Simulated scan of single mutants.
Amino acid sequence: MNVVNRQKQHNVVIKGTKDGLTLHLDDTCSFQELISELETKLSTNQHGDNQQLVAVQLKIGNRYLTPEQEEQLKAVVNQKNNLAVNMIDSNVVSKEEAVRLKEEEEIVSISKIVRSGQVLQVSGDLLLVGDVNPGGTVIAGGNIFILGALRGIAHAGYSGNIQAVIGASVIENAQLRINDAILNPTENGGHKEASYMQCAYLDEDGEMVMERVQSMPQLRPNLTRLERRN
């Protein structure tokens, strides 16, 4: 009679890295089984010393965790004096998160004139067919492209995107903002006089620079999300 030795599957695998510990947590077992094995392994293994805090990353694969389960996982790890969870890495996103990500990836196309006192804001990229008059404001989480005259305020990358750019057919007496950087019309010769087919971007030092639109494919090769086909 053949006897097959089956090794018990580990629901928790602990790996040390230069940045701390990574805990690979099985996504097919029950949550209670996972918690039980995690408590056992953390109690029987000493990681680091009590004088040094060890950062822990939890990789949970395709498991969906409720907010309560996330807190329970963190509590099991954090109860060890020298361990602290700094990240939970999951392949699963909530519906709300998926909608937010989709909005941030969208290119919103709008045809209108943004007049004085009006604010036009989108989560992703903005393609505006029309002018931004003095006193008007356009804001985007991504890039701003204006097929018209920009004479008001344009704020691209408002959520922290330092790779965002601002481009317009005409830029004149406009205030440009990318992330936290601001370029006023009176600075660096400003844009008091009209400049045509220009783009603004942040260089490696975080300074705003103006270039011709034709330079953007070299400066921002990932600017377009359209797939290039030969």
Rank of each mutant, 00 (worst) to 15 (best):
M1R: 10
M1L: 09
N2W: 14
Q7M: 12
Q9E: 15
K15R: 11
L21G: 01
L21V: 01
H24M: 09
T28S: 11
T28Q: 13
L34W: 05
E37P: 09
E37A: 10
K41M: 09
K41H: 06
S43D: 15
T44W: 06
H47D: 03
G48P: 07
D49T: 14
D49N: 15
V54Y: 03
A55V: 01
K59Q: 05
K59W: 05
I60K: 07
I60D: 04
P67W: 03
E68F: 01
E68V: 00
E70N: 02
Q72K: 09
Q72L: 07
V76W: 02
Q79G: 07
A84D: 02
I88Q: 04
S94G: 08
E103A: 11
E104P: 00
E105I: 04
E105V: 03
V108Q: 06
S109C: 03
K112F: 00
I113H: 09
I113R: 05
V114Y: 01
R115H: 07
S116Y: 10
Q118P: 01
V119Q: 05
L120C: 02
Q121K: 12
Q121N: 06
S123E: 05
D125Q: 08
D125G: 07
G130Y: 00
D131S: 06
N133R: 13
G141L: 00
G141W: 01
I144F: 08
F145L: 15
I146N: 08
L147V: 06
A149Y: 04
A149W: 02
S159L: 05
Q163R: 14
A164T: 04
I166T: 10
I166H: 07
A168I: 04
I171G: 08
E172Y: 06
N173R: 12
N179M: 09
D180K: 07
I182N: 11
L183V: 05
N184S: 14
E187G: 10
N188H: 14
N188Q: 13
K192M: 09
A194C: 07
C199I: 14
A200K: 06
E207I: 15
M210L: 14
M210V: 08
R212C: 08
R212L: 13
R212N: 13
V213A: 15
V213Y: 10
V213G: 11
V213Q: 12
S215F: 11
S215E: 12
N222F: 10
N230W: 12
